[in-house]
């Protein structure tokens, strides 16, 4: 049997379990991702997608199993700004009195001093990130005045400014305009070429086939995991969604 070098894996989750006050949200889940891989996380609402993200970022504690990020603990990944989390649009308070610039600057907080005073390099990183998501005209716009797509791009820019090597994206394509969708797909290709690892949850089957090298189907635990072309079959999807056929869920494929 060949020995596994854990350094090779960006994300290595082994038999992880998460429960909230005794209620199991996720059990015996495994995931291994290498640099440059894009993996789709597919499952019903309440299947544990967000819980999986929360476990990887350390926002919830796992009750069993082990997570290694670049071969090290989640705690040291937090310290190193390794993981960036891009929330769902619904997951944030869009009425919060804060501008695009301030949100993106939050990507730099982890590496600043205790007063969070931006250095020259932080300002530059924020500028570059905002330019990459094409929001330079909206630097001081409050996030409440942005469209859904622009808001999504703001949080993507935050992840870029953070210079994370792992991106976790919760429903990156939900509620965005065509222009944003195109920009996000272009960014994904750039990220892949830069060697970043991406894990994204989505409801959209077409996006999985289009971008994801790998797919992880979950329903409280892993239903299937592997190359998209092999694993993303109607049978597996039906199992993931509790016996409902994909045609019924998403309409017949065209």
């Amino acid at each position: 049997m060949e020995t596994i070098n854990y350094q090779n894996f960006r994300i290595d989750a082994e038999n992880i379990c998460v429960d909230y006050n005794g209620k199991v949200a996720l059990y015996d889940a495994n995931l291994r991702l290498k640099p440059g891989q894009i993996c789709g996380l597919v499952g019903m609402n309440g299947a544990g997608k967000t819980t999986f993200f929360n476990a990887l970022t350390g926002f919830v504690n796992i009750s069993k199993g082990k997570i290694r990020i670049n071969g090290e603990s989640v705690r040291s990944a937090q310290k190193d700004q390794t993981i960036a989390y891009v929330p769902q649009n619904e997951g944030i308070d869009s009425q919060f009195p804060i501008s695009v610039w301030d949100v993106v600057m939050m990507g730099r907080y982890g590496s600043m001093n205790i007063f969070r005073c931006p250095r020259e390099s932080d300002v530059q990183a924020v500028k570059d990130a905002i330019e990459r998501v094409d929001l330079t005209d909206h630097l001081s716009t409050p996030i409440g005045n942005l469209s859904g797509g622009q808001r999504k791009r703001t949080f993507l820019a935050r992840a870029i400014a953070q210079r994370a090597s792992i991106l976790l994206l919760d429903e990156p394509f939900s509620g965005v305009d065509i222009r944003t969708e195109k920009l996000i797909s272009e960014l994904f290709i750039q990220f892949k070429n830069e060697g970043k690892t991406i894990l994204l949850s989505t409801h959209d089957m077409i996006h999985v086939r289009e971008f994801c090298d790998l797919v992880l189907l979950i329903n409280k635990t892993v239903v299937a995991y592997g190359e998209t072309s092999e694993v993303f079959t109607p049978e597996n999807i039906t199992t993931t969604f509790g016996g409902i056929s994909p045609d019924f869920l998403f309409g017949p494929e065209s």
């Binding site: 937090q78 310290k79 944030i92 919060f96 907080y109 205790i114 007063f115």
Partner: peptide, 22 residues
């Protein structure tokens, strides 16, 4: 005053705060 910005981040997006080690 010292934790002004951290508290703002905590109110706005605690998940991100946790992710970057705050």
């Amino acid at each position: 005053s010292i934790f002004r910005k951290d508290l703002m981040l905590y109110c706005f997006d605690p998940r991100h705060a946790k992710t970057v080690g705050i």
